Amino acid sequence: MNKRRFLLITTCGGLMAAARVVSAQPGGGAPRRVGVFSPGGPGADDAILQPYFDEMRRLGWLDGRNVVYDRVFANDHMELAPGLAAELVSRKPDLIVAISPPGSSAVKRATSTIPTVFAVVVDPLAAGLVGNLAHPGGNVTGVTQSIAESLMPKRIELVREVVPGVKQIGLLGNPLDPGSIADQAALAPLLANLGLRMVVANGTNPQEFDASVASLVDQHVQAIVVANGIAVTRRAEMIAQTNRARIPVFGFNLPMAAAGALLSFGPSMTDQLHRAAHLADKILRGTRPGDIPVEAASVLELVVNQKSARLLGIQIPQSVLVRADRVIE
Results as ranks from 00 to 15, higher is better:
residue 5 R to Y: 04
residue 5 R to N: 04
residue 7 L to C: 00
residue 8 L to F: 03
residue 11 T to W: 00
residue 14 G to L: 10
residue 15 L to D: 00
residue 16 M to H: 00
residue 17 A to N: 00
residue 18 A to G: 11
residue 20 R to P: 00
residue 28 G to E: 15
residue 30 A to R: 15
residue 34 V to P: 13
residue 39 P to D: 09
residue 40 G to V: 07
residue 42 P to L: 02
residue 43 G to S: 08
residue 47 A to Q: 07
residue 54 D to W: 07
residue 56 M to H: 02
residue 56 M to E: 02
residue 62 L to I: 15
residue 64 G to W: 11
residue 67 V to Q: 04
residue 71 R to M: 14
residue 82 P to G: 00
residue 85 A to R: 15
residue 89 V to W: 04
residue 94 D to T: 05
residue 94 D to L: 06
residue 99 I to F: 10
residue 104 S to P: 06
residue 105 S to M: 14
residue 108 K to N: 09
residue 117 V to D: 02
residue 120 V to Y: 01
residue 123 D to A: 02
residue 124 P to H: 05
residue 127 A to M: 11
residue 129 L to F: 09
residue 138 G to D: 10
residue 139 N to T: 10
residue 139 N to A: 14
residue 141 T to A: 10
residue 142 G to S: 11
residue 143 V to A: 12
residue 145 Q to K: 10
residue 149 E to S: 14
residue 150 S to K: 05
residue 150 S to A: 11
residue 153 P to K: 08
residue 154 K to V: 14
residue 154 K to L: 10
residue 162 V to F: 01
residue 167 K to I: 08
residue 169 I to Y: 06
residue 170 G to Q: 01
residue 171 L to D: 00
residue 177 D to M: 02
residue 188 A to Q: 13
residue 189 P to T: 06
residue 191 L to E: 11
residue 192 A to L: 14
residue 193 N to S: 15
residue 194 L to T: 06
residue 194 L to F: 02
residue 194 L to Y: 14
residue 199 V to Q: 02
residue 205 N to V: 04
residue 209 F to W: 06
residue 209 F to K: 11
residue 211 A to E: 12
residue 213 V to M: 10
residue 217 V to K: 01
residue 217 V to E: 08
residue 223 A to M: 06
residue 225 V to G: 00
residue 226 V to F: 03
residue 228 N to D: 13
residue 229 G to Q: 12
residue 234 R to V: 04
residue 235 R to N: 00
residue 236 A to D: 09
residue 238 M to P: 00
residue 243 N to G: 01
residue 246 R to W: 05
residue 248 P to H: 06
residue 251 G to T: 08
residue 254 L to Y: 13
residue 260 G to Q: 07
residue 262 L to I: 03
residue 265 F to N: 07
residue 265 F to M: 05
residue 267 P to V: 15
residue 267 P to A: 15
residue 269 M to W: 14
residue 269 M to N: 14
residue 277 A to V: 10
residue 286 G to N: 08
residue 289 P to C: 06
residue 293 P to Q: 10
residue 294 V to G: 06
residue 295 E to S: 12
residue 297 A to G: 15
residue 298 S to G: 11
residue 300 L to M: 12
residue 301 E to G: 05
residue 303 V to C: 01
residue 308 S to I: 01
residue 308 S to A: 14
residue 309 A to K: 02
residue 309 A to F: 07
residue 311 L to R: 11
residue 313 G to F: 05
residue 324 A to I: 04
